[in-house]
Amino acid sequence: MIFNQLLINGIIAGSIYALVASGFSLIYSATRFVHFAHGAIAATGAYFVYTFFSMFGLNFYLSSFLAIICTALVGVFFFAIIYRPLQKKKSSNAILLIAGLGIMILVENLLLLMYGADVKTLNFIEVAQGKEIFGAIITPLQMFIVLISVILLVVLQLFVKKTKFGKKMLAVADNPELADITGINAKQIQYAGFAIGSALAGVAGILIGLEQNIEPVMGTQLIVKGFTGAVIGGASSLPGSILGSYLLGLTENFGIWWLPSGYKDAIAFVLLLIFLLVRPQGILGINKGVRQ
């Protein structure tokens, strides 16, 4: 019984991680650097929906829509004013990573300043009695979360594989120089990557807001999970990062069978280190996970 419950918890966690990780992976593919503030961007998504829905009293779906757009804009904004100038100066990836860390702390503390340290809740969907499936409890809200994630991930996958724009993104991810030679506008792809990736982060933020609490520091945990999911699956491969996220969600939830739940973040990093040591390109990555 507990096995099934942990399995389901793992899948729910994995769904949210997969949204963060696929956005991260999209940005990584387009720009080739680690956007460490991605989790903080997801946190702004949660706060935007809180602002529109709980503070302004707008319709929930309209609020979510606006929040996703605002989150995408925030992502693009940071790319335009910080990352892009750094890239133009040919800064190393380590500098971009540290800048991302700076952005993360900046956003976290701005949220803290504007909304306070207390946790916020959306209370949109009533906490309903969970349904029992194979002896495990799952609430309708959790089913909704898994459903939305899966639909979005499938749509994203189709977008990348089937549309022309998506194929351009894949081309840039696969071989930036060659893509550049064939006349693909890399700058456009990078902005699009940031916009779509941040929008996905916004969705993840909203879904977390629905089920758990919204707090300024939620971004740190999200980037740790999203990044780990992406890297263990193969950072530049979209299906890989989704697979990696579910794997992480399951590992964490089965891990707390033996360890205190506070070790959840540590489990992610240990898994990450193991993968970086043994298979740095990730499960589905083709030696593209780590440069050089």
Binding site: V34, A94, L97, V224, D265, F269, P280, V290
Partner: peptide
């Protein structure tokens, strides 16, 4: 075995 930003992330992970 890690280089550049991956080394940085590995060490950051150690701090976490």
């Amino acid at each position: 075995r890690l280089k550049g930003d991956y080394f940085a992330l590995g060490t950051l992970g150690f701090a976490f």
